[in-house]
Computed example of a mutant assay.
Amino acid sequence: MPSASSRTGRAAALAIAVAAMPAAWAQQGASCEKPVYLTFDTGHMGVASLVAEVLKRQNVRVTFFAAAERTQTDGDSLDSHWAPWWKARAAEGNEFASHTYDHAYWRGDLKGVAPSFRIKPSAGALAGREFTWSTAEYCANISKASERLALITGKKPLPLYRAPGGKTSPRLLAAAKACGFEHVGWSPAGFLGDELPSEKFSNEKLLAQALETIRPGDILLAHLGIWSRKDPWAPANLEPLIVGLKAKGFCFETLRQHPQYRAWIASHP
């Protein structure tokens, strides 16, 4: 039978080992040699609960780009109905950024000394009409979504934004950057196809294509619900995509860790 002193020694050693485990796990988690950056834009929010469940189950953090888009709950994606959902995602360690408050599409630059743009919102009271916006008006719409996210999540969003449809011009990007917002698009292979017609692009085809073509460093794009797609993407593909990428050695990070944006984010605390 082991002596009291040897038992005490082993107990102390075990305590030290257990205490060291979190640090070891953290170090292992910090090592991400094949990162990908999964991002979600808002939509009708019909798959939002499912997306949250999958991300939590798979221990994956993502970056959400939010606009006040029309939802299946007869409101918008940044209203009080969805505030608890966003707050819960913040508590899980996800990141947030603006998608312009009114999901405002850039339609063209206008000539003149002061930059101005043709803009067509697809959400809110202005939806479907085309306007001429100054730099200040465009920046205000980006900021409005960011400020709303900060209010309902309790977490400061990243100083990033994504233009609806990814439609921009050099002049528009320069204007947004001057007011503190760097634009984020997506990688060609990262376009996951959830807004394409399911009659031509089946979930099986989209999943196989993604697993074949995604490479380390890619920014991936999906949505929290697309009105036009008859066979929704997320219920069929989100978890198999994450599991499949993990099996190939990929790991998931938020845009806070992206090498292209780290310095910008750090300089805009």
Score class of each variant (00 low, 15 high):
Pro259Cys: 08
Ala123Thr: 07
Ala114Glu: 15
Val60Met: 04
Lys87His: 12
Glu195Val: 12
Arg229Gly: 03
Gln260Tyr: 08
Pro2Tyr: 13
Arg162Asn: 05
Pro35Met: 00
Glu130Gly: 06
Val36Cys: 10
Arg61Leu: 11
Val184Tyr: 04
Thr168Gln: 06
Ala189Gln: 15
Leu172Tyr: 08
Gly225Pro: 11
Thr135Lys: 15
Gln257Tyr: 05
Gly165Cys: 10
Met45Ala: 01
Pro115Leu: 07
Ala17Thr: 11
Arg215Lys: 12
Tyr138Phe: 14
Thr39Trp: 00
Arg262Glu: 12
Leu238His: 02
Ser98Arg: 05
Ala208Trp: 03
Trp133Tyr: 13
Lys144Tyr: 12
Val18Gly: 03
Glu95Pro: 04
Ser228His: 12
Pro188Ile: 01
Ser3Ile: 02
Val18Trp: 06
Gln260Phe: 08
Ala67Tyr: 04
Pro35Lys: 09
Leu245Gln: 06
Ala145Gly: 06
Pro188Arg: 15
Val60Pro: 00
Ser3Asp: 10
Val113Tyr: 14
Lys120Ser: 15
Gln209Gly: 15
Thr153Asp: 03
Ala175Glu: 02
Ser5Met: 15
Pro240Asn: 07
Ile119Gly: 04
Ala210Arg: 03
His81Gly: 00
Pro235Ser: 06
Asp76Leu: 06
Lys246Ala: 02
Pro259Gly: 07
Arg148Asn: 05
Met21Pro: 06
Pro197Gly: 13
Cys139Trp: 10
Leu206Ile: 11
Ser5His: 11
Glu53Arg: 11
Trp227Arg: 14
Asp74Leu: 11
Asp76Cys: 10
Asp194Cys: 01
Pro235Leu: 02
Trp82Asn: 02
Ala140Arg: 09
